[in-house]
Computed example of a mutant assay.
Amino acid sequence: MTAHSTTDSIMYFQHLDEIWSEYPELVAGALVATGITADAVVEPRIEAFNTLAKARLAAGTESDLPEIQAWRRTFSRMGLKPTRYRCASESLLRRFRKEGALPRIHPLVDLCNAVSLAFAIPVAALDVARVSGHLEVRRAAGDENYLTLSGEPENPEPGEVTFVDAAGHAHARRWTNRQSGHSAVRDTTRTALIIAEGVHSSAAKDVPDLIATLSDALSSTWPTTVRTARLSRSAPRFDFAVPSYGAGDEKQR
């Protein structure tokens, strides 16, 4: 075990037991990567993942994929119309099928999006410097603060599954539907928390495979330290150290 620096802070990510209890089919994986920069070249890897996605879409649409069908059933159980509110991987696959490519945002985001396309599994990437204390997947009280990617403030609906930190920031809407602009990866991001969640029948194999694939891609792209975890009801919590950076990279809360 590697000793943590005295300047490191310890954070954690977990799903509360209420989520595991209601959705026992959930399989979750998490990854923390440090040393991320915005100048990496990821196009060759993106093209390889896009080729896998195209092969999967060759026989039909994203709605035919078992990973997407399972999330649609989950959204229905949450009282959401699945053709109005789609999980993130379905939205990406739908755009990819129609347009043939996804817009480039940031090398890390682009890589995560490409892996999400290839596996048809939602992948969230958050700037750890914008997460306060810890991150929990739980039902919303309704007073949490959510910021859209365009900068508009919202509050999740009471009972909505969301990602909440210690300061009451909601980092997602409707579980895997939308991420928050508050913790979106940006050019100043140095440490990222990446989460993948599957609810389909082969998720127990596919989610760990996705995390391993992404870990390999990150390690090959950046001089990064990567830590991974497989989460379950019996082992729901992922503790990780966050390095302290210089004045130019200070945490923003």
Rank of each mutant, 00 (worst) to 15 (best):
R77W: 03
A204C: 00
A118W: 10
L80G: 01
A229K: 13
V115P: 09
L126Q: 08
P156N: 06
T176H: 09
A167T: 12
T2I: 13
A120H: 08
V242E: 05
E99T: 05
I68H: 01
G151V: 02
G142K: 02
S91Y: 04
G246S: 13
R130F: 00
P156Y: 06
G159A: 03
G29W: 00
F119Q: 09
S21I: 02
P24Y: 03
N50Q: 15
G248E: 10
R45M: 11
T34E: 14
G133Q: 08
A40C: 06
A58L: 00
T176I: 03
V123W: 05
V41A: 14
K54H: 02
L126A: 00
A101T: 12
G100L: 01
L16N: 07
N50P: 01
S63V: 10
E18N: 05
D127G: 00
S150E: 15
E197L: 14
Q14C: 08
G60Y: 03
D249K: 08
A120F: 08
R86V: 02
F96Y: 12
A118D: 10
S21A: 13
L80F: 05
N50V: 00
A141R: 14
T191N: 00
R173F: 07
R97F: 08
G60A: 02
V161M: 13
P103Q: 07
H4W: 14
N155Q: 15
P66W: 11
R72C: 06
S244H: 13
D239E: 14
A235Y: 10
E144L: 04
S89Q: 03
V199R: 11
L92H: 04
H171S: 03
S219P: 01
A212V: 01
R227N: 12
M78T: 01
E160W: 05
F119M: 10
V137C: 10
H15M: 10
R130G: 00
S63R: 15
A229Q: 09
A247D: 13
W20H: 02
Q179S: 11
A101K: 10
E152F: 07
L16S: 06
I19Y: 09
R178Q: 11
L210S: 04
R139A: 12
S220F: 04
P223V: 13
S201D: 12
L126E: 04
E90S: 06
I105W: 11
V199P: 00
R77I: 04
C112F: 03
A120C: 10
E99H: 08
R253D: 15
E136D: 12
A3V: 14
G159T: 06
A53H: 05
E90A: 11
D8I: 05
A118V: 10
Y23T: 15
D143R: 04
T225F: 06
F163D: 13
R186G: 11
L80K: 08
R190T: 04
V137G: 03
F163Q: 13
E47K: 12
Q69P: 05
Q69W: 03
P158R: 08
